[in-house]
């Protein structure tokens, strides 16, 4: 079973194409790394998955449903962390976590205390005084606290220090162990390499490579140095050459 399945997805903003036929499949219970350069269409794809944007063409299945028409039912079963978290200035971090938890409907006091402790967040501070990293923590805690099947994370750990980055990676591995699916869009290729078992590379609104980590491992070993980063840059340059840019 796939938690997410997209076929031939097209999205236009006016005359410009943001997505030119995206195909991808996220197996249930996996951690899927969604990587690509800036402006490749990562956030647009995610926003269509969340029913925030309307697709123009193609098929999108999220947890077996249509993300645009069945948004309320589906949102009960997922949690989302945006790349640039904006919060309510006059509310404290603790209030936001409680509010979002109650709105989603799945939430427990014990887990709340556990994750606030693990991410080392002061919940009594007003959101406007939080740094970017701390705002990100509020959204991450709110997502991990919830009892959902799918986590959609859009560059979730930007602004986190290396210590917190470690906590974050631990948390998503635990989520997988608990049977959850994680869709992780990221710029940090070392992070993707460390935790993901499936990878999709998007560029210019199209998926240019998809596969599981085991298959990619062989390709990575052929790179110099043997990292996902080198492989990614290789794909990226190849794409540029094909389009006559490089």
């Amino acid at each position: 079973m796939s938690a997410i399945e997209i076929r031939g997805l097209i999205k236009r903003f006016g005359k410009t194409f943001a997505l030119e036929g995206v195909d991808l499949k996220v197996p249930e219970g996996s951690i899927y790394g969604f990587i690509g350069p800036n402006g490749a269409g990562k956030s647009t794809t995610i926003r269509i998955l969340l029913g925030l944007l309307k697709k123009d063409e193609g098929e999108v299945h999220l947890l077996g449903g249509d993300p645009w028409r069945e948004n309320v039912e589906l949102h009960r079963r997922l949690a989302y962390v945006p790349s640039d978290v904006q919060l309510w200035d006059n509310m404290t971090g603790g209030e936001v976590i409680d509010f979002l938890g109650r709105l989603r409907g799945s939430y427990s006091k014990e887990r709340r205390a556990e994750f606030i402790e693990r991410f080392d967040l002061d919940p009594t501070k007003k959101c406007k005084t939080y740094s970017k990293g701390n705002r990100q923590k509020v959204a991450l805690i709110s997502a991990f606290v919830s009892d959902v099947e799918l986590l959609i994370l859009d560059e979730p750990s930007t602004g986190l220090d290396p210590l917190m980055e470690g906590v974050f990676q631990q948390c998503i591995k635990e989520a997988r162990k608990a049977g959850k699916t994680v869709f992780l869009s990221s710029h940090i290729l070392s992070q993707v390499e460390a935790v993901c078992d499936q990878i999709g590379v998007i560029r210019g609104g199209k998926i240019i490579k998809e596969g599981n980590m085991e298959e990619l491992r062989a390709l990575i070993l052929q790179q110099e140095p043997p990292t996902l980063e080198a492989l990614f840059l290789n794909y990226y340059k190849k794409g540029q050459r094909e389009e006559g840019l490089g």
Binding site: W88, N90, M91, T92, G94, E95, V96, D98, F99, R102, L103, P123, T124, K125, K126, T129
Partner: peptide
Amino acid sequence: PQRAGPAFAKPGLRNLQALAWRT
């Protein structure tokens, strides 16, 4: 110094109406 706020939300802060009142 910046005043600290409540660590927990009041029980009433649980839906969009309550949030709209805050804003």
